[in-house]
């Protein structure tokens, strides 16, 4: 996927002046940066949910975990998955994510963490070439996070991954490449191994 000269326009502001990125097939990329620096705007532009200037070519087939759950509260877990993917193997995917017992439960009756897992399960149900995940681990406890990370790793083994996250450890574990952006564009773009995680300040530090 090629992104050239990306400039995302909102009513009162513009994000990125000239963002350029190239992501190879099956590449696992983490987009990190401070809050409000445009990570979600980048995702929205790729999904054509906002107006932007620039060119995005060779766009793969996406499956998406949004920043918000975006689930139909009145439907059950199973129904939410079947809504987007009628031929999904619901039992299998829910089993993987640890929600099989809640298959028939209405989403509105689930906890925040469980809703998050439903959103992830939904994304994992769809056949795709790249998983786009915007803050998928928010609301998950440590143990669940570990399980979800493993499942995502299995899911994206033969696919691309575009991960937007504040969770540095998960980014480190899941991705081959880390791109640090700010409101203007790319600040750092290196392989994961070229970074160290400084948990004290919550940032990736490029190895010199």
């Amino acid at each position: 996927m090629n992104i050239e000269g990306l400039k995302v326009k909102y009513k009162d502001k513009t994000v990125f002046e000239n963002l350029c990125l190239k992501i190879e097939n099956n590449e696992k990329v983490a987009i990190v940066g401070k809050s409000g620096e445009g990570k979600t705007s980048l995702i929205k532009a790729l999904l054509k949910l906002v107006d932007f200037d620039g060119k995005v070519t060779n766009v793969p087939e996406f499956s998406v975990v949004f920043q918000e759950d975006r689930l139909v509260e009145e439907l059950s877990v199973k129904e939410n998955i079947l809504l987007v993917c009628p031929d999904a193997d619901v039992t299998n995917v829910l089993n993987k994510i640890g929600l099989l017992d809640s298959e028939r439960t209405k989403v509105k009756n689930l906890s925040g963490g469980m809703k998050r897992r439903v959103a992830i399960a939904r994304a994992m149900s769809k056949r795709c070439e790249m998983l786009v995940a915007d803050e998928p681990f928010v609301g998950l406890d440590v143990a669940t996070k570990a399980v979800v990370t493993e499942r995502l790793k299995e899911f994206v083994a033969d696919k691309g991954l575009l991960l937007v996250t504040h969770d540095l450890l998960q980014a480190y574990e899941l991705c081959d490449r880390i791109i640090i952006i700010d409101g203007n564009g790319v600040v750092e773009d290196r392989k994961t191994s070229e970074f160290t995680v400084d948990m004290a300040i919550g940032r990736f530090i490029a190895n010199s």
Binding site: L47, F62, R70, V72, V84
Partner: peptide, 20 residues
């Protein structure tokens, strides 16, 4: 947001009506 999700996932119109 739900409608955006449906658009991104390519949910057909009929299923948007009946499912959302």
């Amino acid at each position: 947001e739900l409608l955006e999700m449906a658009k991104v996932y390519g949910v057909p119109h009929g299923r948007v009506l009946s499912g959302i």
